[in-house]
Simulated assay, not measured.
Amino acid sequence: MSGRGRLGTGLTPAAGAAVMSTGILSTATESAGLTVLSWLLLALAVAGGLVLGTHLVVRWATDRAGWLADAATPASLTGVAATTVIGGRVTAAGWTGPAWLLLAVAALLWVVLLPRVLRHRQVPTVGGSFLVCVATQGLAVLSATLAGAAGSRPALSAGVAAFLLGLVLYAGVLARFDWRQLAVGAGDQWVAAGALAITSLAGAHLVLAADRLGTPGRVVGPLRALDLAVWGLTLGGYAVLLACELRWPRRHYDVRRWATVFPLGMTAAAGFAVAEAERLPALARVGQVLLWPALAAWVLTAAGAAAALLRRGPAAPG
């Protein structure tokens, strides 16, 4: 994930990761029973999404060339992921109508942005490159969540297709990954684990939706096994990145630090979902434990963002 490019007033495309992070922590805290905090985080995520969306529209109208240049970077896909994350939380609140609209918006953005990002892909890949998987699995999560809530088999089928495509995209990025990023990345190296976490979350919601729709066991069984395998890889990736973080600490704020918060929160949220889908309540304790470092990272990163904004001062007129 790069901070290159501006949405206006000091915002970069990577700032969408802040909305992703806040939205998924709303989901995780809701699963943990922290209802008031969950609603507060959802309100912040929606407000951030509206601000970023407004800036995108303004940028499209006033700086088309710059908009198209930024649209070719993986960071542009944070808009897709953020929309699906908010949509998933909205669905959990019982608001399926707005969630279907958010799914349509996210799918349209994905169709427009993903081919452009893939055509301009960076080799070797870096942490932000995994956003092609994150955005795709975001569609899988929201499709599966809506499939379960609305009893929609077409949504379930779309979710399975996005889930499998996301796995292919992850493998393609991983095959060309610059492993030096584990030591020198500014925060977005964590998306390598975050992409696995959202894949696990997608698999869990697909299992839950398939069960609710009465899908035959011969279909659900392999999906359940695949989801457990991805969950194991998620925990392994989390452990590796945490060890690298301790070995090569990065103590200064960078907007790409939001791409660290997102995987932390996503892994916690996946823990709760996998526990429910696999009928393994003990895994929910993993989600409970991992939620607190994610919240701490959110607070520290938000404080760093506020301090950076104060240092920058008001934008120059014109």
Rank of each mutant, 00 (worst) to 15 (best):
Val112Asn: 05
Trp100Ile: 10
Ala99Tyr: 04
Gly127Asn: 12
Ala144Tyr: 02
Ser143Ile: 03
Gly138Thr: 07
Ala135Tyr: 02
Ala107Phe: 13
Pro115Gly: 08
Arg116Phe: 04
Gly128Leu: 00
Arg119Glu: 10
Thr136Asn: 06
Gly159Leu: 07
Val111Asn: 00
Trp95Ser: 13
Gln137Ile: 09
Ala158Ile: 10
Thr136Ala: 00
Leu156Trp: 15
Val123His: 13
Pro124Arg: 09
Ser143Lys: 03
Arg153Trp: 10
Arg119Val: 01
Gly128Asn: 06
Gly148Asn: 03
Ser143Val: 00
Val112His: 13
Ala106Trp: 05
Ala158Asn: 03
Arg121His: 15
Ser143Leu: 06
Leu146Met: 03
Leu103Pro: 06
Ser152Met: 03
Ser129Gly: 07
Leu102Ala: 13
Ser143Arg: 01
Leu109Ala: 13
Cys133Glu: 15
Ala144Pro: 07
Ala158Asp: 08
Leu101Met: 07
Thr136Tyr: 02
Val132Ala: 14
Pro154Trp: 02
Leu109Ser: 10
Ala158Tyr: 04
Pro154Leu: 04
Gly97Phe: 11
Gly148Glu: 06
Arg153Ser: 13
Leu109Val: 01
Leu139Arg: 02
Ala99Leu: 06
Trp110Asp: 08
Leu114Trp: 03
Ala140Thr: 04
Ala104Thr: 12
Gln122Asn: 09
Ala107Asp: 03
Ser157His: 13
Arg153Thr: 14
Pro115Glu: 02
Val117Asn: 05
Thr96Val: 14
Leu108Val: 11
Arg153Phe: 11
Val126Gln: 14
Gly159Asn: 03
Ser157Val: 11
Ala147Arg: 07
Ala144Gln: 05
Arg119Asn: 11
Pro154Glu: 01
Ala144Cys: 06
Val126Tyr: 10
Thr125Gly: 15
Val117Leu: 09
Trp95Pro: 02
Leu108Ile: 04
Pro154His: 06
Trp100Val: 12
Val123Arg: 15
Ala140Asn: 07
Val126Asp: 13
Leu101Asp: 06
Gly97Met: 11
Val132Arg: 05
Val123Thr: 14
Leu102Val: 03
Pro98Arg: 02
Ala150Tyr: 02
Ala155Gln: 14
Leu118Ile: 12
Trp95Ile: 02
Gln122Ala: 11
Pro154Ala: 08
Val141Gly: 07
Gln137Pro: 01
Ala155Tyr: 14
Arg119His: 12
Ala149Gln: 07
Thr145Gly: 11
Leu101Asn: 00
Gly127Phe: 05
Ala147His: 11
Leu101Lys: 00
Trp110Asn: 04
Ala147Asp: 12
Trp95Glu: 14
Ala150Trp: 01
Pro124Asp: 11
Thr125Asp: 00
Phe130Glu: 05
Trp95Lys: 08
Trp110Cys: 02
Ala155Pro: 02
